[in-house]
Design a protein around this nucleic acid. Structure first.
Lengths: 328, 328
DNA sequence: CTGAAAGCGCTTACAG
DNA sequence: CTGAAAGCGCTTACAG
């Protein structure tokens, strides 16, 4: 039924040995042009396709990259997924998509990645236990935290410059004359939220500008609810810094619902610069995460480590840039 | 380095044969409780994990489902991806994510799916050549077109009831007193766009109500541009039927940009009912696609065909429902 | 450059 | 219920 043509069949038809057939399909092996052609012709005729399972069994390698993510609902991650998929495809890798509902990667997900002996892993929007991380190291499987700094052990990570970004945003708002401010954070334990808070508050503390902080969850609904809470307190800040764009949209919608004019009555700044930020409905001032460069850094590292594992680890920060639009 | 503990090692430690170790991990095989325990203990101690490649090589099966999609940018598909991933995970399957840039599945993508001998395939937002489809059939790999009817050969497909939906929308708009209408379609060759157009126009033709048709592309930008074009003609219709929600948002934003009031000056109806449709920024009247049921139908069919292949084929249509909000 | 042969880590009849 | 052995479809030293 399924896939019955083997290298042996091709060998017979081509009049060569099975080893020669194998060499034609194995990168790096040497075969004469003549046998190569005969093999390829025979293979074509029979519809031969090398069995990846037999190959992986022997080489102990795969051409699969594990992509672990939680937040496909946020267009930022949809974009990330899309770009990783097409770039890894160009390099000959397939994507094993591991969706994790929980903040933390589950043991089950790790088993899957190890079972398929993935060549490398990208983890985005999720955390990992120390013991889990060690398993990847033990197996020499390179792993990158994308848009997250690892909270456990040391791993390669690629982020944008969150602290600088949020500092710049603070300076910008102050330059616009903002006095009392509101900060809305994302999920409390994520490095991005922690860093964006840190950079922002650092500047305000230094300048002795007062602000209120609200914890939210990086979702539209979270932003909306949080803004409603702020409004109930009847103390409208002169500006909101919201830790990501999707929450900022929720904030904007809540403000509009209450007839608060933006940017006249208060200002709103997001973080990410997802495509929607430039929609006429929002025209959100935000900080652009350099997705392309971040992905490039991630892919380059993984490919190098796959080619020759060193276990080298570093926290990469790529510079983002300020995008001024109409909410400020 | 990578994964060195084999069934042989476990067998030695447990004092049983390698076959017995294998039987412990192979569903359906019979082993006594006693040997099972000894094997499991030994396996735990050594950190044994069965090699999926060796297994697949012999069984000629995999626990991988291929998920082919193009439009992760549309939140509808992000939701679809998320749900498929978590449901298939529950059933013990992993997801091979195949992102296709082109409307048509590329040969390369098909090779990948066949190479990994996927247990089943879901194709969404993409078309396929006849010859390609036949390859899946030949290999007895079940395939479902999700939210698309196959334009080539016969395959199982799962959609919502597009024609009924768009008919209902037409009736609804007429009942609201709409006279001259505008229809904005999605990608011309997609079954969803064709059907939504068909149902809508059928009713209007029957009632002798005039309308103008514009072809667009199922993207926000496409919707925005198309609405701008409509506005340039200085003949504002009494309502727009836009073939999906994300385009409808573009239409709404373009109308607002031109100070057209919704629903006073004109009305807008979308299709999909993605989460954003209920955002205060849009409050879009639309047709709800019953994603959960559609996914259930897809998964059930695939699991049955995986268990025992019949090649049975059908076009499933699940009933959606009208969602009235504030754009009408 | 090529072939014969061993072996990757499993599953699966086949005996017992 | 269990073990010895064959074999899945490849890669890879090893000779020649």
């Amino acid at each position: 039924m399924r896939e019955t043509v083997t290298a042996k069949d091709v060998a017979k038809l081509a009049g060569v040995s099975q080893s020669s057939v194998s060499r034609v399909y194995f990168e790096g092996a040497t075969v004469s042009e003549k046998t190569k052609k005969r093999v390829l012709d025979a293979a074509e005729e029979l519809g031969y396709r090398p069995n990846v399972y037999a190959r992986s069994l022997i080489t102990n390698q795969s051409n699969i990259i594990g992509l672990v993510m939680k937040g496909v609902q946020n267009p930022f991650y949809a974009q990330v997924l899309k770009r990783f998929s097409s770039i890894f495809k160009q390099h000959g890798y397939s994507i094993l998509f591991v969706y994790t509902n929980n903040d933390e990667i589950q043991q089950e997900d790790v088993e899957t990645l190890l079972n398929y002996n993935v060549a490398g892993v990208v983890v985005t929007d999720a955390t990992m236990l120390f013991s889990v991380g060690e398993e990847f190291k033990k197996n020499h499987i390179p792993l990158v935290f994308f848009n997250r700094k690892p909270n456990t052990g040391s791993f390669y990570s690629v982020c944008c410059n969150n602290i600088d970004g949020s500092r710049s945003i603070a300076h910008y708002l102050l330059s616009k004359g903002a006095s009392e401010l509101v900060l809305i954070t994302g999920n409390v334990h994520t490095s991005t939220s922690i860093e964006r808070e840190k950079g922002f508050c650092e500047v305000l503390d230094q300048q002795k500008v007062s602000y209120r902080k609200y914890n939210s969850d990086y979702t539209y609904e979270g932003g909306y609810q949080t803004a409603m809470t702020v409004l109930e307190e009847k103390r409208l800040p002169s500006a909101f810094f919201v830790a990501n764009d999707i929450m900022a949209f929720g904030v904007i919608d809540a403000l509009r619902k209450n007839d608060v004019r933006i940017p006249e009555d208060t200002k709103v700044v997001g973080f990410d610069n997802i495509a929607m930020a430039s929609w006429p409905a929002y025209e959100l001032t935000t900080w652009e995460q350099p997705i392309e460069e971040m992905i490039e850094e991630t892919v380059n590292y993984l490919l190098e480590e796959i080619a020759s594992y060193t276990g080298f680890v570093q926290d990469i920060e790529v510079d983002g840039k300020f995008m001024e639009r109409k909410t400020t």
